[in-house]
């Protein structure tokens, strides 16, 4: 299995742990990732509302960079994934816009035919293409005893992405059941983390974050699993301030799902980027998984 890989800016900075664990895990599972050469920022959530044409062109450039050897592009970040997918659809459905974007791409010696690249989320690749048999076969450290709360956020499952229920997704839940974890079916797993609201109105953002932490806590989760750098950042980095704001005392480690998947596959925790999160995950994982063997693997 071979995919073009679009890491996105966050994965090079604040969410380096995501990038590190994605590469380690996919390598372990025999999936080849070819990083796009000279990719650029996807514009995140804001750019589309600033200037749709420029935003589309900027993203289309990344699609155009996918060489003829690949027809599938993987983006682990939720915003990147949605933007790339959305742009492909926009270009297919709006010929007028496509004309303008074509001109912009041509200026850089590039071209893109909508539909040529199939934009996929990492979870979809792991769940569908790699599949339960291959993943289960590689588990060396079952996650039994660890209560995980899968958190999907908004952008990966909405709007209709076709690979999971947009209102009540379950694929990540299922995957962690394959790994032997106790999966917490808590009700807010597809609710918003507040996104950039932290920069606009902290009380609003904190309330959204609190709801997530509280629900996971009520369901006695040991750790929350994220698939999006923004979600991870909000839940992890703002946890202390949320506690201060509401007088709560949440202490929930927030990790990327690939990090914990890596643990199950027996990959050394250092190679999975652990330690960068503010609420430390390692102690919980080690104590629950009851093993000095954790992370001692390859």
């Amino acid at each position: 299995m071979k995919y073009a890989y679009y890491p996105g800016c966050s994965l090079e900075a604040g969410s380096a742990a995501y990038d590190k664990s994605v590469r380690a895990v996919l390598d372990q599972l025999g999936v080849e990732l070819d990083e796009l050469n000279d990719w650029n920022c996807c514009g995140a959530t804001e750019y589309f509302s600033q200037n749709e044409l420029v935003a589309t062109s900027v993203i289309a450039r990344n699609l155009a960079l996918v060489d003829s050897e690949h027809d599938q592009l993987v983006a682990p970040c939720a915003a990147c994934f949605l933007n790339l997918k959305k742009t492909d659809k926009l270009l297919a459905e709006h010929p007028a816009m496509k004309c303008q974007v074509d001109a912009a791409l041509a200026a850089g010696g590039l071209s893109y035919k909508p539909g040529r690249v199939h934009v996929r989320h990492l979870l979809d690749i792991l769940y569908t293409d790699v599949g339960p048999e291959a993943i289960k076969a590689k588990v060396v450290q079952p996650l039994s005893g660890l209560r995980v709360a899968p958190y999907y956020g908004c952008q990966i499952v909405r709007p209709l992405n076709g690979f999971d229920n947009p209102e009540y997704p379950m694929k990540l839940d299922e995957m962690f059941e394959w790994l032997g974890a106790e999966v917490v079916d808590y009700p807010v797993k597809a609710h918003c983390c507040g996104g950039h609201m932290t920069q606009i109105s902290e009380p609003e953002a904190f309330e959204l974050i609190r709801r997530l932490l509280q629900s996971a806590d009520e369901y006695k989760a040991d750790v929350i699993l994220c698939m999006c750098p923004m979600c991870q950042l909000n839940l992890d980095a703002y946890q202390g301030r949320v506690n201060g704001h509401f007088g709560t005392s949440f202490k929930l480690p927030i990790v990327f799902f690939t990090q914990l998947l890596g643990v199950a596959l027996g990959i050394d925790m250092k190679k999975l980027g652990f330690g960068k999160e503010l609420v430390s995950a390692e102690p919980v994982i080690r104590s629950k998984l009851d093993g000095s063997s954790v992370g001692a693997g390859t």
């Binding site: 209102e167 808590y186 009700p187 807010v188 709801r211 509280q214 629900s215 009520e218």
Partner: peptide, 8 residues
């Protein structure tokens, strides 16, 4: 929109 047990 939803029926939930997540109290606020």
């Amino acid at each position: 929109a939803e029926v939930t047990d997540a109290a606020r």
